[in-house]
């Protein structure tokens, strides 16, 4: 399936993963897809007409800095001067290196876990599968960001959170399908090669 993803689609997925990682709230969920899609040049402008509030107003998740803050308190109670440590590390490894490495997701390098869990939650996986279905249904050769967006719109939680009524949903789907067919449909072989390049 993934070999059909165009470069922009892959970017959207990677950006969604990065968003989840950044906030340390993996696995990746539909909300991360929505946010990444809003910034995509193909699907973004369409989604923004009805869902622009979704990344700004809706607190999709609380940034769980708590884990680090707890560690900070503990370490300081042990007499470790984190500010001085941060200064020294940043001096050696570049500005911001200390905070950046601590923010990075730990389970990536978690030694104790034999099986890495999937990066995507169940709903997100369904969205990925649905994007393929939409591409097949529209007789598209490749899976573009608009197919992914169509898949996201099949998710009931996303629809509810974006407050989309039936009309809005239908309009979004129609516009996304039009863009999808234009960019990836049976007539769009050449542009697909360009995009996939």
């Amino acid at each position: 399936m993934f070999e059909r993803f165009t470069e922009p689609t892959r970017s959207v997925v990677m950006n969604a993963v990065a968003l989840a990682e950044q906030r340390q709230c993996e696995p990746v969920g539909c909300q991360h897809f929505v946010e990444a899609l809003l910034a995509d040049p193909e699907a973004g402008p369409i989604l923004q007409t009805r869902m622009s509030g979704l990344n700004a107003e809706t607190p999709i998740e609380t940034p769980p800095d708590d884990a680090n803050r707890q560690d900070d308190d503990l370490l300081m109670s042990l007499g470790i001067d984190l500010d001085s440590l941060r200064r020294q590390i940043d001096e050696q490894f570049g500005a911001g290196a200390f905070d950046a490495v601590r923010r990075r997701r730990r389970s990536d390098r978690d030694d104790d876990r034999p099986h890495r869990r999937s990066r995507f939650d169940v709903e997100a996986k369904t969205v990925l599968e649905r994007s393929l279905r939409h591409a097949l249904r529209l007789r598209c050769r490749s899976i573009g960001p608009s197919h992914l967006a169509l898949g996201v719109l099949d998710d009931a939680d996303v629809v509810a959170q974006a407050n989309l009524d039936a009309d809005a949903l239908r309009e979004l789907r129609e516009r996304l399908e039009a863009v999808a067919v234009e960019a990836h449909g049976p007539e769009a072989t050449l542009s697909w090669w360009r995009r996939a390049g």
């Binding site: 590390i89 490894f93 601590r102 990075r104 390098r109």
Partner: peptide
């Protein structure tokens, strides 16, 4: 907490 800190520094 110390282990996590040391793991972080190991990454660097």
């Amino acid at each position: 907490a110390l282990k996590r800190l040391s793991d972080d520094l190991e990454v660097l």
